[in-house]
Amino acid sequence: MTTDKQPLTAVGGGAHRFVGLAENLEQHAGRPTGAEPPNVRGDNRGYGLVFFELDDYHLTSVISSGLRFQAIGADPAQELACTVYKEQAAAARYLVDVTAELLVTQRSHLVPDQMVPNRDVLLPGTEFHGVLAGGHPLFPPEFTRFTDPGGVEQLQVFTLLPVTLGEVNYVLDHGVTALRQQWARFEVDVFDLGRPSVV
C-alpha cells in the first residue's frame, strides 16, 4: 500500500466534528488498553486501531481510528469495530484491519446490514468466510451513531460480526433479517469466534 492515503480533513469539515468521540467509545466499549498506529507495518495504511476492554463481560473491542478521514465516500463518516472475548482479541484485530484496508484500498464504504464475503476462510481453524456490518449487539445506539452537540450525526461505527460460509449463503437466499432471527432462535453467542454455524 502506498502512503497517499493521508487524512483528508478538508473532506467533510475536519476533526472538530468528532470532539467527544474517544470518551463516547470508552463509555460503551470500556477502558482503552492499547493502540496500534497507522504506520505499524512501515507505511501509512490510513487508520490506526484502538483496543478496549469491558471487564464485566470479559470482552475486548478493537475499533479503527482514522478511517473517518479517508476518502471512502461515506456520509456520515465511518469507523469499524469488532467485539470478542478477550482471548480472541488478535482475531478481532485482524478482522477490523483487513476490512478497513479493503475499504481504503477500494475507496468504498459500508451500509447497514452489509455482508462482506471472502472466498477463503478469514480466520484459520474457523468456518468464517465473511463479516456482517451493522449495529452493536450489546452496546446502545449511541455507540453506533455518534452525534455532535447539536444532535447532527457525524459518524457511524459499524460492528463486524463474523459469519460462516453456510451463513453467507443463507443471507444470499433469505436475507440478513432471517439470519439474525436464526441467531436469536439458537441463542448464538456472536462474540465467540469458536461458535458453530447455525445453518
Rank of each mutant, 00 (worst) to 15 (best):
A81R: 04
C82H: 01
T83I: 05
V84H: 00
K86R: 13
K86F: 11
E87F: 13
Q88P: 05
A89I: 04
A89Y: 00
A90E: 15
A91Q: 12
R93L: 13
Y94R: 07
D97P: 07
A100M: 08
A100R: 05
E101P: 07
L102N: 06
L102P: 03
L103S: 00
V104H: 03
Q106K: 15
R107L: 09
R107F: 09
S108L: 14
S108D: 15
H109C: 09
H109V: 04
L110K: 06
L110Q: 11
L110W: 07
P112S: 03
P112F: 01
P112D: 09
D113L: 06
Q114K: 12
Q114F: 08
M115H: 12
M115L: 14
V116F: 09
V116L: 12
P117R: 02
N118F: 15
R119L: 15
R119C: 13
D120A: 15
D120I: 14
L122M: 06
L123M: 05
P124Y: 00
P124W: 03
T126V: 08
T126S: 11
E127M: 10
E127L: 15
F128G: 07
G130H: 11
V131M: 10
A133D: 03
A133M: 02
A133K: 02
G134A: 06
G135R: 11
G135I: 06
G135A: 14
H136R: 01
H136M: 00
P137A: 04
L138Q: 06
F139L: 15
P141T: 10
E142L: 13
F143Q: 02
R145M: 12
F146H: 09
F146I: 03
T147I: 01
T147R: 11
D148L: 06
P149W: 03
G150F: 01
V152M: 11
V152F: 10
V152D: 14
E153W: 03
Q154T: 02
Q154L: 04
L155C: 01
Q156F: 10
Q156C: 11
V157P: 04
V157D: 04
V157H: 01
F158Y: 04
F158I: 03
T159I: 11
T159K: 11
T159M: 08
L160T: 05
L160S: 00
V163C: 01
T164E: 01
L165V: 04
G166S: 08
E167K: 05
E167D: 04
